[in-house]
Amino acid sequence: MKKSVFLGTLAATALLAGFASAGTLEDVKARGELICGVNTGLVGFAAPDANGNWQGFDVDVCRAVAAAVLGDASKVKYVPTTGETRFTALASGEIDLLSRNTTWTFSRDVELKFTFVGVNYYDGQGFMVKKDLGVTSAKELDGATICIQTGTTTELNLADFFKSNNMSYQPVAIQTNAEGEQQYLAGACDAYTTDASGLAATRAAFADPENHVILPEIISKEPLGPVVRQGDDQWADIVRWTLNALIAAEEYGVTSANVDELAKGTQNPEINRLLGAEGNLGEMLGLDKDWAHRAIKAVGNYGEIFAAHIGESTPIGLARGLNAQWTQGGLMYSPPFR
């Protein structure tokens, strides 16, 4: 492992020298495929379905970008990454885009040299425990054994939370969500901690979800969003505005069902600019004028994606909460398309 990472870094930097001049957009177009880093398996966010096709909330960001850039939402190669491998994969150029429940933090943005293009899910860290443990608050977890995914912000939040509440705990560091699930169910830890959305998704996959409770405390802010390498502003803009297009589409009532109709022209100039009936926003990005149309057509608007994968009608059953449109009291707010 240690050697392969090093050699990988060497090889990757040797490769970087080759395409340092060419942008990610040209690479993706030349390859005819978008390489997208996703979770190794978190139902609702990114997990292969029964037919082996990747499905989920984060996967749809990849699909939307592929539709906007390549005109085909299926031309995506998914690379499952763990909390530990994701940044190396992105920095080395192994993936074009990381869409994997990644928290936007100062040091990742500034020190690790990545660009967070936006937030597609406002989350916070929570705890899940078995109901028969009789714990109702995270403050009662003094002395507990806690499973955490290593290489994540949750690891640091957990240390801070227990320290500030003057409590002790035993960490069990795990690599992937699947491993965490297994350890937690086997009773190797009292509580499992990760982003509350991840807990809900994990619990939904249990045989007996009713026997597990997610504690009310949310101990951190976890704005999750897609990430690209710093230094390729055009590519960052494409991903950022594709995400914004999905959010704006919900605000203006553009859905995958009516997008073809609305693309012909509407009374609303904002929709016309978004869908390419007016202006040349697509060309400014280095794409064509139908880019947003294709993205929305392929995956639906933000609200549709949310409802399809993690919304209240799915087993995961997350409420919109902070992730509602700003007009509905949430934080989802796209800058204007003009």
Binding site: M1, K2, K3, V5, F6, T9, G83, E84, F87, T88, A91, S107, R108, E111, L112, K113, T150, G151, E155, L156, A173
Partner: peptide, 23 residues
Amino acid sequence: RGTLGGITLNQTGRELECMLLLM
């Protein structure tokens, strides 16, 4: 490997340095 090559590497993003030190 778990501390220096795992969590430290990840939290600081210093892959090369950590790997060299580890080796």
